[in-house]
Design a protein around this nucleic acid. Structure first.
Lengths: 335, 335
DNA sequence: TCGATTTGTCGAAACGGTTCGGCAATCACC
DNA sequence: GGTGATTGCCGAACCGTTTCGACAAATCGA
């Protein structure tokens, strides 16, 4: 690979002049031209490694999603990448699937001196929180909020999302509603549960302990839990699944057991579902405003990265309301 | 951030000894211990940038998929990441969506001196081929094969995949079969078309020119094309879509126009479909052996990266047969 | 016309590691 | 006890950039 020295030699100038020519240094137009020509001739492209080492920071932005196979996260990548590319930065993805890997991923990214991190933090231990706090790289968290950390956060109003869905079911006459949550202790899980509980309580609808389940945001586990729910003595009339893959798992269980949705059981969920139009029945959903969230997150991150003193920017929070999409998955029991 | 010098000072040794201690240099156990302690005390972690600069190559592996939102590719990432992590390397994803970005992505990766590239190359111009050939970084191509390049390649037997599906339809009595291809000129598109054509010819079934369409591996375009197909004077009795998202687009069109699948029109496709069990009817598919392909690709790449002289390894090709999954999306016309 | 600025270029010192040759001190062997 | 190999550590050079101070030449103002 050609280096700056090769270019300098060929153009008959010093390496500092070449460097100045590539950045906005003071170089005469004539010399600039000669250097550009020489660079092309030897096939020179600056070594990003050396640049980053010198600058103390690379041009890489890291995205640490929980599960890249979930379209929610892969679409985050699309948005983030578009913005990053516009700022002449590349995106490095470290899929963390599981908390153990999350720590490893962060250490690797820190070693790479990435310029910023966009993370969906799934860890909940104090240890992990302390580790996050110790990272000095600009960071924006999304989806999962970690309390007590002074980090930027963007996310959806999860309480609102599940409250709206629950109230919708209640309005349709449902009283026996089951809730399938994600991982206990996670911010989104707890908030979505909170919205469900508050709506139920306000309507004086009883919350059956057996009807509150946790399936770790996993489709397979949601399937199992739903099977149990539907084969129990007393069945719910509706299920609120707190994310897309769990909703699909639940729907699969409903279908496999020979139940019909919504005639036998209603289903509603948070998050968009891939190819929703093809899933029968079309689900009623509280969809996260993914495009907006991701755009804000990456913009905030870039702002931190480019600011002289990022510590001077106070931690910000942006919480957007979900968009409600009506489908045909909820039966009207008032008839 | 603490540097190797800080550690050296605290441990009372030279920096070369610290370096030796961290690699497999000759250092006494006692000194090693002291250094480890000092490193912990100052919070030292090697700067990957400096290491890479010195070694001339980073510990990053790049994955350049066509479209990360397609589960086919995001699952590639899962497999690749697992293997890479085991080899203590991180994966950087540069989603190339479109050919223009592909070139940019590669240039960025080259500047980062990534140690290897796993690419699904969508470009087809001579220019692009020449550019690929000029890259000296170890590289393995997958899915799309570029002729005339001495690069490793792993992929599915695309001719076989569409031939099997076509023959299956023919056996069920279909004669008027439509083919929806991806981007004209792309390897997978052409091979899948080839399999379709050869099966049709062998069965003496006529290939209607209007029944061979290209929708650029895009669900929306497939939708449009299918609408045109179904509103034409003479409708096909079956459609072979050459990837998952186009199949879903076609199915959506079928459903939106009020046709029933498979009673009114049969549908089959290549690639797995996310949450296939929930898409009604379940599709008959030729599924690519993704896990195996990705594992081979990353293993080959790691082998190249770790070999002293990667040019000495001749280019290899691995083509695996698809797995056929029977659904209920194809009607038997012989009845 | 002369001193003060500005302009264009250069050399050298970093950034944070790795690596290699050198050099005592220790060990093995006869 | 002398020779040769081994062990454990060090200093210095280097990877490919950026940046800063120095400096000659050109330009400017009065």
């Amino acid at each position: 690979m050609a280096t700056i020295r090769d270019v300098a030699k060929r153009a008959g100038v010093s390496i500092s002049t070449v460097s100045a020519a590539f950045n906005e240094g003071r170089v005469s137009d004539e010399t600039k031209l000669r250097i550009a020509e020489a660079a092309r001739a030897v096939g020179y492209a600056p070594n990003a490694l050396a640049q980053s080492l010198k600058n103390g920071r690379s041009r890489l932005i890291a995205l640490v999603p929980g599960d890249i196979t979930n379209p929610f996260f892969s679409n985050w990548l699309i948005v983030v990448e578009k913005h990053a590319l516009a700022a002449n930065r590349a995106v490095i993805v470290s899929n963390s699937r599981g908390v153990a890997l999350e720590r490893t991923a962060l250490e690797l990214l820190a070693a790479q001196r990435v310029s910023g991190i966009l993370i969906n933090p799934q860890g909940i231990s104090d240890d992990y929180r302390n580790y996050l706090a110790s990272i000095t790289i600009p960071m924006v968290t999304f989806d999962q909020y970690i309390e007590g950390l002074s980090l930027d956060y963007v996310g959806t109003d999860n309480v609102l999302a599940s409250r709206i869905l629950t109230e919708y079911l209640l309005r349709l006459g449902h009283r026996r509603i089951a809730f399938i949550g994600g991982n206990p202790g996670l911010w989104t899980t707890e908030r979505r549960l909170e919205g469900f509980v508050s709506a139920m309580q306000r309507a004086d609808a009883p919350i059956e302990p057996d009807f509150v389940l946790f399936a770790n945001y996993d489709g397979g586990e949601a399937y199992t839990e739903t099977v149990r729910l539907l084969t129990g003595v007393e069945r719910p009339t509706a299920i609120l699944a707190s994310n897309n893959v769990m909703a699909l798992g639940a729907l699969q269980a409903i279908s496999d057991l020979g139940f019909r949705c919504p005639q036998d059981i209603s289903l509603t969920s948070i998050d968009d579902v891939p190819w929703m139009g093809l899933v029968k029945p079309r689900l009623t959903l509280a969809v996260q405003p993914l495009q907006e969230l991701a755009a804000i997150a990456i913009d905030w991150l870039l702002e931190r990265i480019e600011s002289r003193d990022q510590a001077s920017i106070p931690p910000r929070r942006m919480i957007l309301p979900p968009k409600i999409v009506l489908g045909e998955s909820c039966a009207d029991l008032r008839a």
